[in-house]
Design a protein around this nucleic acid. Structure first.
Length: 618
DNA sequence: TCCGAGACGCTACG
DNA sequence: CGTAGCGTCT
């Protein structure tokens, strides 16, 4: 039914039906007639309304031998209601439309409140839109109360490596096995004018896919992870996406100009010392200058090569080695640093801004390890380290001044609010210690005098007193540890450390000698993966690795590194998400706390907290 | 001759 | 290891 045609009594009945519903299956309808169930929705078209399939408790008893999912399937079209809720109005002057608008959000609000599962493909977008459309009528805490199910996330949990690009693909993958549906979508072109009838069929499919996936999740032991971690996260991300972070626009413009000037200077210097003009941003042209004209690589042993074409690399590690041979590498290194700063963190950020604010888009199913990812802007990738620029000023008195540019300070909290960050301390290393039960590593974490884990580790490993540990030792220990976590080989570690592969392999050797259990853990993990075909994290998250038994050495060893990395990184992701859900929930249930979660940087949560609540919140 | 898509390289983050 | 994003070059 279309709620616009309902009378008072019918509206009352509809609300009563919603009260009794066992599930809602829903999708947004866009201005161009497409829905969330159409392939690859381009979010350019604005939202027109919402279609909801209301699943009711059926009177038909389940036939013996039938599973409950089959039963609801059978009863499908009998009692269920399909309702259309228009959320956008062409003109608001009519009294009647106001009434409809009010009733629409009454229906939606009741759906959210009654704790009956709302099934939606891309549920996060649905919730975010509700928050945006009814921002004045409902608070984010109310949305946080709802229960949403998203089959895309279920599919991702079952296999996080293959991304499900659209609803159609999901149907093809998971639905067309038990019963092939007669209403196969044979439309060749993009059939935009989807009738409600067609939508009803698709929502029915959506419901059945979700039931199917729920069953699979239970069989695979992923149900708890799905319900307690991933589903609550949908709401959290939806709320996060509706929060706007203020960016200092004037500062952004100013720094863009400063960086632009510095790039011009560096470009001139580079052309000067190279003896020719070339495009500094082109690694291809740089390669010609450095290695074909100046032949710098011949003066240097074992230079890194590019992955695909096996050409001499112009990457940071190589340029660092060439520094003493010619002035050009150093100039390029600074140019790259400044260029990255300008293009990504200054100009890139400006592109993401809307009226002085940004809000990232969060992807819950974008990684194979269970981590989140963010885009437009990628707030997880904003540089930590400031860079210093000597700005040449031709004003009276001083001729130049040094300005420091740190991208993170470009984000500013609202007036009367403060950014508050809470982060895990070395979570991946702790997980490695726990999973390997390595006694020496565990001891390090338990000792109260350990203030700096990598210094202590360097001291313990090399057997030198902690006061004598130099900064270089600490850095080395840190890099070796994470190389083990990431499963890097000696060449990779050598690049990372700036040493020879021989020395790197000796480091790995002596590290493995001291912490034997870590090596055992790695071997055990790979072995387990070979037997089962997948690896498992602390919370039971899975990653199938088809190549673990491959003939090809490169593919197999890659899968082995992925296996070890998944267990550590995936487990860390589990714990970080748990923290996220717990802290968010405690803010929601608190009657007075207003702290907003702004971003998750993997092991760090960033909040915006009212100044007066900082104590209580922390 | 212009333009978009895809391959590739490099570098931030964790 | 695995994300995003900027940039050439074909």
């Amino acid at each position: 039914c279309d709620i616009r045609s309902l009378g008072y009594e019918e509206k009352r009945k509809l609300l009563a039906t919603i009260e009794k519903a066992v599930a809602f299956v829903t999708t947004m309808i866009f201005q161009d007639g497409s829905s969330q169930l159409n392939s690859e929705q381009v979010l350019t078209s604005s939202v027109k309304g919402v279609v909801v399939l209301v699943k009711n408790q059926t009177d038909y008893p389940c036939l013996p031998g039938y599973s409950s999912t089959d039963c609801t399937w059978d009863a499908a079209n009998e009692d269920d209601k399909l309702i259309y809720l228009k959320t956008e109005w062409s003109s608001l002057w009519e009294q009647e439309q106001q009434a409809h608008k009010k009733f629409t959000w009454q229906v939606l609000f009741q759906m959210l409140r009654c704790k009956v599962p709302i099934i939606c493909f891309n549920a996060k977008d649905f919730l975010r839109t509700l928050l945006q459309v009814y921002g004045n009528e409902i608070s984010w805490k109310q949305v946080a109360d709802s229960v949403v199910l998203d089959p895309r996330i279920a599919a991702w949990l079952i296999n996080p490596s293959d991304t499900v690009p659209s609803f159609e693909c999901l149907i093809q993958k998971y639905f067309e096995k038990p019963f092939s549906v007669e209403t196969v979508n044979t439309d060749t072109g993009p059939l935009r004018n989807t009738s409600y009838q067609n939508l009803g069929v698709n929502l029915e499919k959506l419901y059945n896919v979700m039931m199917d996936l729920a069953h699979d999740l239970q069989v695979q032991g992923l149900w708890k992870l799905f319900c307690t971690l991933e589903l609550p996260l949908i709401k959290i991300l939806a709320v996060m996406e509706t929060h706007k972070i203020h960016v200092n626009k004037q500062e952004l413009k100013k720094t863009s100009e400063i960086l632009g000037l510095r790039l011009k200077e560096l470009e001139q210097e580079a052309h000067q010392v190279a003896g020719e003009r070339f495009l500094l941003t082109s690694s291809h042209q740089l390669r010609e200058v450095l290695f074909e004209k100046l032949k710098l690589h011949t003066l240097c042993e074992k230079v890194h090569r590019t992955e695909i074409q096996q050409l001499v690399s112009t990457s940071e590690v190589v340029l660092n080695k060439l520094q003493d041979l010619h002035p050009l590498p150093k100039i390029i290194l600074e140019y790259r640093q400044v260029h990255k700063m300008k293009s990504t963190y200054v100009d890139g950020l400006r592109m993401c801004m809307r009226k002085g604010f940004i809000s990232s888009t969060w992807n819950q199913t974008g990684t194979a390890t269970g981590r989140l990812s963010a885009k437009h802007p990628n707030i997880q990738g904003i540089s930590k380290h400031p860079i210093r620029i000597t700005k040449k000023q031709y004003i009276k008195g001083k001729e130049e001044e040094i300005v420091t540019i740190s991208p993170r300070t470009l984000f500013v909290s609202k007036k009367g609010y403060t950014f508050l960050a809470a982060d895990f301390s070395h979570i991946e290393l702790r997980i490695l210690a726990d999973l390997s039960s390595e006694p020496e590593l565990l001891k390090l974490f338990q000792e109260p005098e350990t203030t700096d884990i990598f210094s202590s580790l360097a001291s313990q490993w090399k057997g030198i007193p902690s006061e004598q540990v130099k900064h270089a030792d600490r850095e080395q220990a840190k890099r070796i540890v994470y190389s083990v976590v990431y499963g890097a080989g000696k060449e990779r570690l050598a690049d990372c450390l700036g040493t020879t592969p021989l020395q790197a392999s000796q480091f790995i050797e002596s590290f493995m000698q001291k912490y034997k259990k870590i090596n055992e853990f790695t071997k055990k993990t790979i072995e387990q993966c070979r037997n089962k075909g997948y690896v498992v994290s602390i919370m039971g998250r899975k990653r199938p690795l088809a190549n673990i038994n491959a003939q090809d050495y490169k593919l197999r060893t890659q899968a082995e590194r992925q296996a070890v990395n998944f267990v550590v990184q995936g487990s860390a992701a589990d714990l970080c998400k748990m923290a996220m859900v717990e802290i968010f929930t405690s803010v929601v249930v608190s009657p007075n706390l207003t702290a907003r979660l702004i971003a998750q940087l993997h092991d760090e949560l960033l909040f915006e907290v009212e100044d007066s609540q900082i104590q209580e919140f922390s």
